[in-house]
Design a protein around this nucleic acid. Structure first.
Length: 291
DNA sequence: AGCATTTGACCATG
DNA sequence: CATGGTCAAATGCT
């Protein structure tokens, strides 16, 4: 069985586990918050599984990634800076709950293009940092509404923000994040949890050991080194989530092996502003592609 | 007026 | 040649 398939199955099994837990909760009159969190998690898992499968379908894309990697950078392109872009880090997010497709991530973006994408129902919008010219900020993002779920926007970030203009909205974000790098857990950012969230969204990060089959997706990461390496790195439970769901299980062995992020957005209007603080969470290597 | 968005054209790439 | 990413003129918005 291919790795990707196993991972999708793992994801679905996790969804099943959460559903069972929800059933149990309902039988024991657990807190509404806990049940909501479970439902949210189950929905996320389904979306992840769908997303993974959609990526897995396109082998040609994966092939192309490896081919690009095999090339030297001896080719100097004439006009565009695509070759530079390829060396930048890319983050992929699945944003839910957006009503109008404009995803406020705490940075100021300027739309510079939109394209109909072959095989996709929805066009892809291209944004660059508003401060591209004033502060030489080369950050770029692409937003595309999911074909499978119109409420979900796939957001891809390319490059780091070098500008220092962050929307005040960011202040309302309440999250706790950790990630792995080279097998070591590295705390990234943490803010006060003083604000009780009205709505939670899981940000998917992944920097987990690819061989660890216990892991289940929160998101995916792609590498272009080889086709075989275009695997979805993954992680399982958010520690915060685990504490919400089942305090007894937090701190278990499993949580020591996960990288996760739980983002709580005080303002329930949007899933705003967590992206800005999560730049490069998902390092998909030097090449990246949409499904 | 100044800034953002739209949209067709252009270009690199496979 | 098809596709995706970017450019830039036209247009819209405040």
């Amino acid at each position: 069985m291919v790795m990707e398939k196993k991972l999708v199955i793992n994801e679905l099994e996790l969804g099943k586990e959460f559903a069972n837990r929800l059933m149990s909760n309902l039988n024991h009159s657990s807190s509404v918050d806990s049940n909501k969190t479970l439902i949210s998690e189950i929905l996320r898992i389904y979306q992840n599984a769908i997303f993974m499968l959609s990526f897995n379908d396109d082998k040609n894309i994966l092939k192309r990634s490896s081919e690009i990697d095999d090339k030297d950078f001896k080719n100097v392109f004439k006009k565009r800076k695509i070759s530079e872009k390829k060396t930048e880090k890319v983050s992929v997010f699945v944003a839910t709950g957006q009503e109008n497709g404009s995803i406020d991530d705490g940075h100021c973006w300027r739309k510079y293009g939109q394209k109909d994408i072959h095989g996709s129902k929805n066009p892809r919008a291209y944004y660059r940092c508003t401060h591209r010219f004033t502060q030489d900020c080369l950050a770029v993002k692409q937003v595309q509404k999911s074909d499978t779920d119109p409420s979900i926007f796939e957001v891809k970030y390319v490059g780091n923000h070098t500008c220092n203009n962050i929307s005040p909205n960011t202040k309302t974000t309440n999250f706790s994040v950790s990630l792995f790098e080279g097998g070591n857990r590295v705390p990234v950012k943490e803010q006060s949890e003083a604000i009780k969230p009205m709505k939670s969204e899981e940000v998917m990060i992944s920097l987990e050991d690819l061989e660890d089959k216990k892991n289940i997706f929160r998101t995916f990461s792609f590498s272009n080194h080889e086709i075989e390496n275009v695997e979805w790195k993954n992680n399982i439970f958010s520690e915060n989530l685990m504490e919400k769901l089942s305090p007894a299980t937090s701190g278990s062995a499993i949580t020591s092996e996960i990288a996760s992020a739980l983002v709580s957005v005080e303002n329930s209007e949007t899933a705003d502003s967590y992206f800005s603080s999560l730049d490069n969470f998902i390092d998909v290597g030097e090449d990246w592609l949409w499904s």
